[in-house]
Design a protein around this nucleic acid. Structure first.
Lengths: 149, 149
DNA sequence: TTGCAAAGTTAGGCACAGCTAACTATATTA
DNA sequence: TAATATAGTTAGCTGTGCCTAACTTTGCAA
């Protein structure tokens, strides 16, 4: 039941979707997950079985879907990575929210702990630096405009 | 022959490996590609057939492997993305070369043109800014040390 | 020049992740 | 409460990308 193997990108996406639905107050349902991930319902069922086998969700056919403690932790880890990346894209690079969101969905599977931790620090540092030293991000935005980006 | 479909991550990796071997002066050989990508030779053969079908390499069984003009362009596009990402990780975030290299290999498939272009600009801007205004990257490195990163 | 080791290929298999079509369970509402 | 629409599942197929084992080709050395 409690297989502790690295999750595939795909299964991380399912876990993330379930987490986000739960957070939104809703009970996660196959239909909603399918819609979020843009896949067929049948594909969701397959993924739910795998997540259940790994002990990350509680799931019976036709029943409600709940994250287990272990599933919650893994989901939070994915979401944390996602947020760090998205925040960097938006707040430092000045990328629009939607593009940043999409890019973060992909990149969250690609970046390991060292890079994630640095990225997080860099975004934090930026706000700190701007308040206390110099507004290099405004300067960067000006630089982008100058280059027509 | 000249199928113009998006390359999979895997095929982009093979193309990149062939490009890097060619640049290193060597003729790309299956064995070397297998070693770089950490896969079996049989897997390389399969990939070479696909790249050949798409008109990206010139390839006959047991023969030498050469990038076509089209293949060269696609390879350069991948390598360019890779370099932008790696350079940002090393020069801005201060991540060690090896970790940066590995992370860039993954991220190069995940980041689209908008983010890549901003990232490139940000790294350029950083060097410019440091020379002319303020050394915020040194300050960032200090900040990391302070936080024990 | 032949004969063996290394390189490369082929065949066949597996896991993953998606799909459609057909079926079953659940929920709504007339 | 019975009929029906919606949600969810199952079965079976596809494509990708890897593997091993067995084979072929190539190139080098005796």
């Amino acid at each position: 039941m409690a297989e502790t193997k690295q999750l595939s990108e795909s299964l991380e996406d399912y876990l993330e979707a379930i987490y986000n639905l739960s957070r939104a107050g809703k009970v996660a349902r196959s239909r909603d997950i399918a819609q979020i991930l843009d896949v067929a319902c049948a594909s969701v069922t397959g993924a739910l079985k795998l997540l259940s086998q790994r002990g990350l969700i509680d799931y019976e056919p036709y029943g409600n879907i709940y994250l287990t403690e272990k599933g919650l932790q893994q989901a939070q880890s994915v979401v944390r990575r996602h947020n760090i990346i998205e925040s960097f894209f938006v707040n430092v690079l000045g990328v629009d929210k939607k593009t940043a969101q999409q890019a973060a969905c992909k990149a969250e599977h690609a970046l390991g702990p060292i890079v994630i931790s640095r990225l997080s620090s860099f975004t934090d540092f930026s706000s700190y630096y701007i308040e206390n030293e110099s507004d290099f991000i405004s300067d960067f935005q000006k630089y982008c405009r100058l280059k027509g980006l």
